[in-house]
Every structure is written in C-alpha cells, then in structure tokens.
Amino acid sequence: MFKDRLENIIKDVEEAKKRSGRTHDVTIVAVSKRFPLEDIENAYDTTGHTIYGENRIQEALDKSASLMKTRPDVQVHFIGHIQTNKVKYLKNNFALIHSVDSEKLAEFMQKHFEKEDRVQDVLVQVNIAHDENKSGTGEEDAFQLCDFIRSCPNLHLRGLMMMPPLVDDVEDNRCYFTRMKKMFDKCNDIKGYNIDTLSMGMSGDYQVAVEEGSTMVRVGTALFGHRQY
C-alpha cells in the first residue's frame, strides 16, 4: 500500500513540476508521526524510502534510536515545535530540524550543540500567514532570525519551512506558497545565504506547493493513511 501511494505521489510531484516549468528535485518526507515504528520499517523495507518526519519529541527520539540500530541509512526529520526544555535531548537524532522559530530557541540549540560538538542542520519556520494556530517567526522577522542562526557556528541554516492555514480550497493558500518562494529567493539572491531547502506542502496541498517552488514536501496521510491515535 505504501509503495503504491509513494509511486503516485512521485508521479504527482513530477506532473506539478512539469506544469510549472520547474526542474529542481523535490524531496518527499514521509510523515510517520503517531504511526508505529513497524510502519516505518515496512515502508523502508518495501520501497527503500529513507526520509521520515516526526513531530512529538519523545516519540521521535524513540523511533530514531531504534532506526539507527536497525536501518542506519534512514533519516528522521523533526517537523514539530521544540520547547527549549527539550533541547537537551537532541544529539544526532535528526538529520534536519524544520521548526526553529525564535532566536531564544536558536540560542539554546547553539549552546547545546556546542557542548555536543555537533553541527545541526535546521530550517527557519515562517508563519507567513500570521496564523495564530501555527508556530513560526513572522515574515518581517525571518531574515533577522536567519542572520542570527548563520552567526551560530553549531547551527547550519539549510532553508525555510512553512505551514499554511487550514482551508477548504487549497488554492486559497497558493498566495502564501508564492510569498515563501519569493522569500526563499531573496535569501539567496539578495542576502547570499546559499540555502537549498524550501519545505512546504502537505498531503492536501503538496502539488500546489511544488508548482510554487517547494523543494521538500511533508506527506503523511496520503502515504500512511489515517492515523491510529
């Protein structure tokens, strides 16, 4: 089942790229939050897919620890909000953290990873729609946060991430994807960040996100089905 769904999503992504004239690679993060470890193992064993996303810190840590032992080429991305008091649990658990949303959190992470003697890849989460139900720095503060992270020797800024508002018609969010792509381009063309990742698009809207320039989509329900708890 996962194999068939993944093949369909890859096809959808390629068609979205073709419609919009885009040629860059798009990474698919299989969002496995609230699914058992066995579902990740089965997905990997049947397809070889290596990138999975988690948003609950303890669940993510447990899964990452198990996968490092049995399937070491699997990458776990953390896509949820991180409280500062949870930073102490971060080691080499996550290939990419999508959700750095404040200088305070970045400062905690820098101090922690300096002690760990590790450089951690991160994305800045931008709340471009000013949605009170979503985390993320405001659009007007995003560059300041990016600059701060770039000044942290143990954090490596890879790009930007966003979560659009919940809407009935995905076209209502196209404007936010467009604005994020413009911000992403400004990061490189004007600010000179040389970032490579624009993480936006989920199960219901990943095709629109890819059309607007996403380089990484986070797909859960469309791959694993409805969550069990």
Rank of each mutant, 00 (worst) to 15 (best):
P165G: 00
V29A: 00
D62A: 00
L155S: 01
E7W: 01
V26W: 07
H156L: 08
T70Q: 10
A43K: 05
E103P: 02
D101G: 03
D205L: 06
V170I: 14
K91R: 15
V76R: 09
S66Q: 13
Q110P: 04
G204L: 04
M200R: 07
S99M: 00
E38P: 02
M109R: 09
L123P: 12
D172G: 06
N85K: 07
V167K: 02
R179D: 09
S64N: 09
S64W: 03
A30N: 09
R174E: 13
S32M: 06
H98M: 03
A142M: 14
D117W: 01
Q207F: 00
K18P: 07
E7F: 13
E211C: 09
Q75E: 15
V76M: 15
V208P: 08
V210L: 09
E14N: 11
K11H: 12
V126N: 05
F224S: 06
I79A: 11
T47L: 11
Q83I: 04
I97F: 07
G225T: 10
Q83W: 09
N92R: 15
H98C: 04
L61C: 07
M68V: 14
N8E: 15
R118G: 08
P36R: 04
F2L: 10
L145G: 02
V170T: 11
I195C: 02
I57Y: 00
I128H: 11
L160M: 11
R179N: 01
Q120C: 00
M202E: 07
D168M: 09
H24K: 07
N42T: 12
D205M: 03
R56D: 11
R174T: 15
